[in-house]
Structures are given as C-alpha cells and as structure tokens.
Design a protein around this nucleic acid. Structure first.
Lengths: 213, 213
DNA sequence: CACCCAATACCGGTTTACCGGTAGAACAAA
DNA sequence: TTTGTTCTACCGGTAAACCGGTATTGGGTG
C-alpha cells in the first residue's frame, strides 16, 4: 500500500559516490519520491537527521566511520517511523539477522536489479520485510545457530524464573521457597548461563520470547 | 477432554468439616475420581503435598492459618500441573482476579449446585477456567480498576524502555543516547511510577504485557 | 561403582539499581 | 502569562545484583 500522495523523502548513506549515483538514477524512475539526500559517512547522516527526517534510508552497512548495526539502531531509536533498508555487497547470514534485529526492514545486495530495488522499496513501505533474491536464498538455508537445542530449565529454575519475572528480589524468592538466598542466586546464575544472557532483564526477555514459563 | 482412564486424585482444603463432607458427597457421583483427601488447614495440606500429589485441589481461600492467595501460588509453584479451584462463600471482584493471577483455574461459590461443581471440574480439567454462575456475573461487570487509562510513555521513555529490555545498564543507555546517566535514571524512575511497578523486572513485564514497545 | 546432574550453600568483592529528594530549560496549551 | 509536560541533571545513601570461584549432597544411569 504505497501512499497515493507522492512524497517520500529518501536518504542514501554510502561511502562510494558511484553507488550513490547509481541508486539515484535507479530511483528516479520510481513515482512518489519527493526528495533524495545522499551522505558518504554515518556521521554526516546523523548530523542531518538531527533536524530533518527521512521516510526511507538506504543504508550501506559497511561504512568507514561507524558500525552499520549501531547506526541502524540509532536511526530507529531517533526516529522509529523511518524505514531502514540495509544495502551491502556481501551477504552473511548472521549479519543479515543482526541488522534485522536492529530494526532494518530489509537487506539488499548492491548487485540487485532496478526492478528488485523498487519491489523491495514497496514491500518495506507497506510494512513488510524485503530481501533481494540472493539474500532470500541465504536466509532459506538454516544456520547452525538456529539448530542448537533450546536450553531447557529444570523445575526449580522455572519456579525461580517465574518469581524473577514478578520482580521479586533474590532474598524475597528465597523466603518464598524456603531456601538460602545464595542458593537462589546460584540458580539465577545458572539460568543466565544456559540462556546466554548477562542479567535479569535479558533473562526475562528470553523467558518471554521463548515462552519458557 | 477428560481422561478416559479414571484416576484423578482430589484434595479438599477447607476449615469447615461440614463443607468437606458436603463436597465429598457431591463428588462421589463423579466418575474418574480415584482418591479424595481432606485437610482443614493450609499447613496440613502443604505437609501432605511434600510427598504426595493431587490432580485437583478444591481450595477454600478463607483459611484460618494461611492466606489463600499465597497458598494457591505455593501450590502452583510446588506442582504446576495441579489444578486449583478456588472455593469461597463470598465473591469480590478483585479477589477473584487476584487468585486467578496466582494460578487458580476457577472460582466457585459454596452455594453452587452439584451440577455446577461437576461442570467446573470438567472445564478446569480440560485446560479451561471455570466459574460458578454468580461469579461469572461479577466478572462480567467491569471494575473501575480496569477502566483507568493506560499509562502512556513519552518518546524518550519508550526509547529508554526499549534499551532496558535489552539488558542495557543505565550508564550504557546514557552513552548510547548521549545523555547523563542521571537523566536516564530519572526517566526510568518516572516510567516505574507511571506503570506502578517497583523495579526493572516488573517494568519489562509491564512493557511486554501491555505491548508498549 | 563411577559419573553426571540437580539442588543446595558459601565467600569476598565490584557494579548497578533503587530511593528520597531538588531543580532548570524548552515548549505548548489554556 | 501562568500552567503543565517533557527532558534534562544533580546529591547522598542503602539495597541488590553480578562475578569469580568452590563445595557437598542425593538421585539416576551407563
């Protein structure tokens, strides 16, 4: 569902002027674009963002000055409505997943065709997540990381996790379960190790996301 | 979906012997009950629970020795598979909601009919939540508490909450947003006040449950 | 029997969270 | 213009979390 009123502002962030020009030309054929702004570093772009907004950002994630993952997150934090499409010339599974985790709405290889760029743009604007062909292929084959057995918690651990999500303190939990606070802390630490998180906040989110309770 | 093989163990916890006898007789007509055990105090029952299990507990929530809400929670913590049906002779909206919050699978008034008891039992066993007629009526009329406007968070607060759910520390968030750690803490505290929670764990759960992110 | 896992418990130390305030600046609405 | 909200920032103190270990016990299982 592209807006009928044609007024998207697009920002291109890429350290290669050639790519910028290529994208600029490629996007000229697309209806509904009101303005295009190009930047060759992440810093330049963030400065511009301080008093402008973009509807779409085509973001090269291999910039000289800043890490693409962080920049993507910063953009989404500063302006959650902005749609970020990651652009790169190499596609590695974990990188794709990470940038999506950081709020990107798609991942495009630079060798994608003009048609593909337009399709992804529309897809992202309509609220979806878009990938160019090669990227889809990479995502299709399951990574090793996803195959690893889901951490399983013991009965006691689940009990304690439940109480942790209720905001109980270690000593409070210990009283409720008639245990030493030290024991409760040990369980808590074991869970954090199992789930590969480093504090209670992440522990709770892991529990929620993986429906461990 | 009641089990075809008839072997449920039922425990009755009620400080009135009359009620126990009443329930005992009332349940005799129900097929699929293997054993019935009665207790007049919460303590007695928990002692028994230490080396036995019950499939169903009919729990009077107005016991002399312990608080019914806590007891219910303790039962579910000790044995999450056990189904607890709260039994009481008075129904107050907030009490009903609280005990459900603590894991009960239903709420029955003592004046409920035998048929109603059996219906609720089946309903609870099949994974549902069951109420006697009067209780349903009370639940049907919305309480004032539920009507209060959902707390709304500001843009900045949402940003910070997002990072809190990712397990970031106050100082880490401050760096990411280029703020003083003291400012971040203030925002965090304001959010906790707004959402009526008292620590980060509850804050995260509130955010998840109310889909504030 | 030897081995592993779950559950229990401890020590000492550093870092973070939480609480009780207070307060200035920017901005928008009444 | 006064009022309200948001965002910013500070102080001093207590409580709790987190980290790095270590260790004993009781059940199972090969």
């Amino acid at each position: 569902m592209l807006k009928q009123t044609a007024d998207y502002t697009i920002a291109i962030v890429d350290d290669h002027p050639v790519v910028i020009e290529g994208l600029r030309i490629l996007l000229q054929g697309v209806p509904g674009i009101a303005g295009m702004h190009a930047f060759t570093t992440g810093g330049e772009f963030m400065d511009w963002m301080a008093d402008h907004t973009a509807d779409i950002v085509l973001l090269d994630i291999m910039l000289p000055d800043v890490n693409g993952l962080d920049l993507c997150k910063d953009i989404k934090l500063a302006s959650p409505e902005t749609i970020v499409l990651a652009v790169s010339n190499q596609a590695e599974r974990s990188m794709i997943l990470q940038i999506l985790q950081n709020g990107a709405s798609g991942y495009l290889l630079k060798n994608a065709s003009a048609a593909e760029f337009r399709r992804c743009l529309e897809e992202a604007l309509s609220g979806g997540v878009a990938f160019s062909r090669e990227v889809r292929e990479i995502l299709a084959r399951p990574g090793r990381a996803e195959l690893k057995a889901p951490a399983t918690l013991t009965r006691r651990e689940k009990q304690i996790l439940q109480l942790v999500t209720e905001g109980k303190t270690t000593t409070g939990i210990a009283k409720e379960l008639h245990l030493s606070p030290l024991t409760v802390e040990t369980h808590r630490r074991n869970m954090m190790q199992k789930l590969e998180v480093k504090n209670a906040a992440e522990l709770i989110m892991a529990a929620v996301q993986r429906k461990l309770l």
